[in-house]
């Protein structure tokens, strides 16, 4: 369940994102996450961006703890626990479209590898794009969307998804990215009549389904999710609307 591993390689994915690889024997599945800690930082949740014998996390630097991880060098020990949560349910025989938004791309890369399905990667600009190469290697078709049009489709991943779903039939959309993106994605899936599974985030402490701080309605994101089905999401009043802070107070999503 918990282990201390050493970083065996570090990949620079972009100006603010790095992937840290380590060897970990635990069996994991695409969409699951771990809790990561080294002394001097708060323990934080990170999706697994590789799920074979060599595992990895892909960290976007946005604050003090992700900065602390970025400061780590080769061989540094990190404490991890997990894997936690329910990952993607990869249905055989379904035509899938995979969508990664921002650093959320890291969480869907294992699914791209396992299925080879068509994939969309969205980012603000071409400088923020991550994992294009590996996605291109495994996906049948890879499309890029940037908000400023600096690469690929000019617009967001959801707009591009609407085009692709209208052009050819898909049975299932699998996605991870900012909640606002996934909110619009969900609306689009409802409108277009496509099934979906979305990987969501909430503030986490135990990660193990015990403390109850990561609730969306009556679901624990860490244990009942982080990947939820369209059916489950349809019952969530919190989705796209509100979250909870460390105290458990309801906070409007910005």
């Amino acid at each position: 369940m918990s282990d201390t591993v050493r970083i065996v390689s570090i990949i620079d994915d972009s100006h603010d994102t790095k992937t840290f690889e380590f060897q970990w024997e635990e069996k994991t599945s695409p969409g699951q996450f771990i809790m990561v800690w080294v002394p001097g930082m708060e323990e934080i949740p990170m999706s697994l961006s590789k799920t074979a014998r060599i595992k990895s996390i892909t960290v976007k630097k946005i604050g003090k703890d992700t900065q602390k991880l970025h400061d780590l060098g080769l061989g540094a020990p990190i404490r991890i626990r997990g894997p936690y949560g329910k990952g993607f349910d990869l249905k055989k025989g379904k035509k899938m479209l995979i969508i990664g938004g921002g650093v959320g791309t890291a969480a869907v890369i294992p699914v791209v590898k396992e299925t080879g399905a068509d994939t969309i990667i969205g980012a603000r600009t071409d400088k923020d794009l991550i994992m294009e190469e590996v996605a291109g290697k495994y996906a049948k078709n890879l499309w890029i969307a940037t908000d400023d049009g600096s690469k690929g489709f000019h617009g967001n991943a959801v707009q591009l998804m609407r085009e692709k779903v209208t052009e050819s039939r898909y049975d299932l959309v699998l996605a991870c990215g900012p909640e606002i993106m996934q909110y619009h994605l969900y609306k689009a899936c409802v409108e277009l009549g496509v099934d979906c599974q979305l990987s969501l985030e909430r503030h986490m402490k135990c990660g193990a389904g015990v403390c109850g701080c990561c609730m969306m309605d009556d679901m624990r994101v860490c244990r009942d999710g982080p990947v939820f089905t369209k059916e489950q999401i349809s019952k969530m009043k919190d989705f796209g609307v509100s979250t909870r802070d460390e105290c458990g107070r309801r906070v409007k999503l910005g």
Partner: peptide, 13 residues
């Protein structure tokens, strides 16, 4: 009063 609790790590198996 509202209380954020201790910083993580707060839990382990």
């Amino acid at each position: 009063e509202p209380n954020p609790g201790h910083p993580n790590p707060t839990f382990t198996e």
